[in-house]
Write a protein that binds this DNA or RNA. Sequence first.
DNA 1: TCATAATAGTTGACTTAGTCAACCATTATT
DNA 2: AATAATGGTTGACTAAGTCAACTATTATGA
Lengths: 136, 136
Amino acid sequence: MRAFNRYYTNLIGVLDKDYLETQYTLTEARILFEISLGKKNASEIIEAMRIDKSYLSRVLKKFEKNKLIIKSKSGKDARTSQIGLTAKGKLELNALNTLADKQLEELLRDLSATEIKQLALHMNSIMEILNQKSAS
Amino acid sequence: MRAFNRYYTNLIGVLDKDYLETQYTLTEARILFEISLGKKNASEIIEAMRIDKSYLSRVLKKFEKNKLIIKSKSGKDARTSQIGLTAKGKLELNALNTLADKQLEELLRDLSATEIKQLALHMNSIMEILNQKSAS
DNA sequence: TCATAATAGTTGACTTAGTCAACCATTATT
DNA sequence: AATAATGGTTGACTAAGTCAACTATTATGA
């Protein structure tokens, strides 16, 4: 398993490099994605991604400046703001997803359809097994 | 599959944080590991890990200074040096491996023996499928 | 209900990790 | 022999992330 972790760390490291040509980092892309999933405020994103809150704060500020998100104070708790993707934010996220798809395509280039299907199954199984734990 | 990549990116990111308490980064640990596998010179490590050569150069310098490795000029090609782990290097690597083991243990804590076995099988399958491609 | 603690997020100052380009020295090519 | 290619190092830099201190607000408990 250590071998797999090393293997996948390497793989992700390679994929990561493509984000150099992008306006955003892999982490930023992931944050944007989390927001698109409906994470409503900073704490939730921090909880989900386990990143530093100061770092997130700055990333969100950047997003806001670039008009990818809007923050709106919710009456309920004046300390937090509700975060939502703007149209432009959705567009950017889409572009980033397209990059991820291209990377996958490249990764799977020489695989047969059945191999790809098997790969997907294995991946799903891993997530299921590990998730069940986190649900416990 | 994008989901799995995101998932595992997150997981690795979490594991990565433990290396903060270590004297070495995850990347450095991986470099050390590659050397232990018998990678003899910088080029081979670069090829295997796809990291920047200047970065690697500095890491190796640090390793050498900390006496984790020894570089020896090989008569064959005076541009390269042969890299080898010292006893201390092996020791440090061992400590880092122990950390990785602890992390795994934590990750698998609530899983049954069969689940762990299945997990390992899925991981192996993924590596096999993806590797076969790279071998082509 | 007031003081204290806890939570959410921001800011300043900093460190580390990694990048990019230029550069030597050596070896390969023609 | 000249030129190109390779292996690695160095300088200068940027980006990514961390840590601690702080403000504002909300929750808690004597």
